[in-house]
Amino acid sequence: MTAVAPDLQPGSTGRLVPVQVHFDDLDALGMLHNARYPVLVERAWTTLWNERGLVFEGDWDAAGDFCNAVKELTVSYEAPVLRPGAYAVHLWIERLGNTGLTYGFRFCSADGATTYARGTRVLVRLDPGTLRPTRWSDRFRTCAQDLLPRD
């Protein structure tokens, strides 16, 4: 279950989604491996969208808004995660255009107080037949409204 993200800064928006770091997510030095952060962020998004009734079940022709590709990913690592356990990902949408979407994330402590990493990811929605950019659905736009910046 997602929780409303605490207002960590004025105007913050989004949701805090619980994630679990497992022992095998750690590298040889006992830190969360840098490649695991995007995977955990993706799992948090999957949880959030599934809770909102947007589910991808592996059929690209029926995937709808889940037929998308990553155009850009940035991650800034701020503090090491040194043990398995309960953490969270704070998710929000920075920009929702016609075919593109930029979301922000923070990998943080379970209560959202400590930030371990932050970043952005740009997605482009694709037509499953042509793999060309196509418009996000109205249903997706409705499901994403509370994740957009507050005016």
Rank of each mutant, 00 (worst) to 15 (best):
T2C: 11
T2Q: 13
T2Y: 10
A3D: 07
V4T: 15
A5F: 09
P6W: 14
P6A: 15
D7Y: 14
Q9W: 15
P10R: 11
P10L: 07
S12Y: 10
T13F: 02
T13H: 08
G14A: 02
G14Y: 05
R15T: 06
L16I: 05
V17E: 02
Q20P: 10
Q20H: 08
V21A: 02
H22L: 09
H22M: 09
F23E: 02
D24C: 01
D24A: 00
D24Y: 08
D24T: 03
L26S: 07
L29W: 15
G30D: 01
L32A: 00
H33W: 05
N34P: 09
A35W: 04
R36C: 05
P38F: 05
L40Q: 04
V41S: 06
A44G: 08
A44M: 07
W45N: 00
W45M: 11
T46W: 07
T46L: 03
L48G: 05
L48Y: 00
W49G: 02
E51D: 12
R52Q: 14
R52K: 15
R52C: 10
R52N: 05
E57S: 11
E57V: 10
W60P: 04
W60T: 10
D61G: 15
A62Q: 12
A62N: 09
A63S: 08
G64I: 11
E72L: 11
E72S: 12
L73Q: 15
T74V: 06
V75D: 00
S76M: 10
S76K: 15
S76V: 13
E78M: 14
E78P: 00
A79C: 12
L82I: 11
L82Y: 07
G85R: 11
A86H: 04
Y87W: 09
V89C: 10
H90V: 06
I93H: 12
E94S: 14
L96C: 13
G97Q: 13
G97H: 09
N98M: 13
L101W: 04
Y103A: 01
F107Y: 05
F107Q: 10
A110I: 06
A110W: 06
D111T: 01
A113P: 00
A113S: 12
T115L: 05
T115G: 02
T115A: 04
T115I: 06
T115V: 03
Y116K: 08
A117D: 04
R118C: 13
R118A: 14
G119D: 06
T120P: 01
V122D: 01
L123A: 08
L123V: 11
V124H: 04
R125C: 07
L126Y: 06
L126V: 11
L131T: 08
L131P: 01
L131I: 06
W136S: 05
W136E: 06
S137E: 07
R141Y: 08
T142N: 14
A144V: 00
A144S: 09
L148Y: 09
P149T: 05
P149S: 06
R150W: 03
R150V: 01
D151Y: 12
